[in-house]
Design a protein around this nucleic acid. Structure first.
Length: 224
DNA sequence: CGCCTTTGACCAGCGC
DNA sequence: GCGCTGGTCAAAGGCG
């Protein structure tokens, strides 16, 4: 049985903060029931509070009925789910999945929220990008590091982070003017688990959809 | 030739 | 101020 785990730490109570090594920050102001469930996820019981694990993740054991869902469809569904329910509320106080170090320096958020790409390129010489786009992360048990989420990514960096055996890889969406990035790393405690962190919102549909017109229309509704 | 990965260097933020 | 760390840049090389 293949297993995916989606970080739903927004639904945690205040004293159930995510493990620090996962870089999560739980927002105590939101309850689990606030998540609206996409049709394709209902079979995965993602909105069932009883399925919330002790570590703040929702473990999705794929049932026969859900097994037909392609991995990227599941991911795309989650993207839409999170966007619709919370990620767009990108004020500092409601930032859903922020790394602890960044939470402590919340002043960094939103300064250049609407700056254009060319302007950003001009500015980066003196100052690194201070914007932090909406982000969320999830972990998946997988042999491959890069999950097929329907988008095309280009690797632009790799870094060995402290207290981890495996390097963290940095990817950027290859689509013009799309500033979405993602980080991929393996969980130190369990190398079988891949931690994927998305940052930003896609301004286009998944590249696979462009190639395959048979893709379910509900999926294309959830790009960001 | 174009696109991609690799990798060392650089930079900003943070803690002390 | 200094050192550490994470994130990014960009040159170099590989591959189809």
């Amino acid at each position: 049985m293949s297993t995916s785990q989606i970080a739903l730490n927004q639904g945690l109570s205040e004293d159930q903060e995510m493990p620090s090594q996962m870089g999560f920050y739980s927002s105590p102001s939101r309850s689990f029931s606030q998540f609206r469930c996409h049709q394709s996820l209902r079979s995965l019981s993602i909105n069932n509070p009883s399925s919330l694990g002790e570590d703040g993740t929702c473990q999705l054991n794929e049932s026969p009925s859900s097994r037909a869902l392609k991995q990227r469809d599941i991911i795309a569904s989650h993207l839409g789910e999170f966007e619709a329910s919370s990620v767009q509320k990108s004020t500092n106080s409601l930032w859903p999945w922020v790394q602890d170090s960044e939470r402590l320096s919340g002043k960094r958020y939103g300064e250049d929220e609407h700056m254009g790409v060319s302007a950003m390129k001009m500015k980066k010489v003196k100052a690194r990008r201070k914007v932090r786009e909406p982000r969320f992360c999830f972990k998946t048990m997988s042999d491959v590091d890069v999950l097929d989420d329907g988008y095309k990514w280009r690797k632009y960096g790799q870094k060995v982070v402290k207290n981890t055996q495996h390097p963290r890889s940095y990817y950027r969406c290859t689509q013009d003017n799309c500033r979405v990035k993602k980080r991929v790393e393996r969980l130190a405690e369990d190398p079988r688990m891949v931690i994927t962190t998305y940052e930003g919102r896609h301004i286009h549909s998944p590249s696979h959809d462009l190639d395959n017109s048979q893709a379910p229309p509900q999926i294309s509704n959830f790009f960001w």
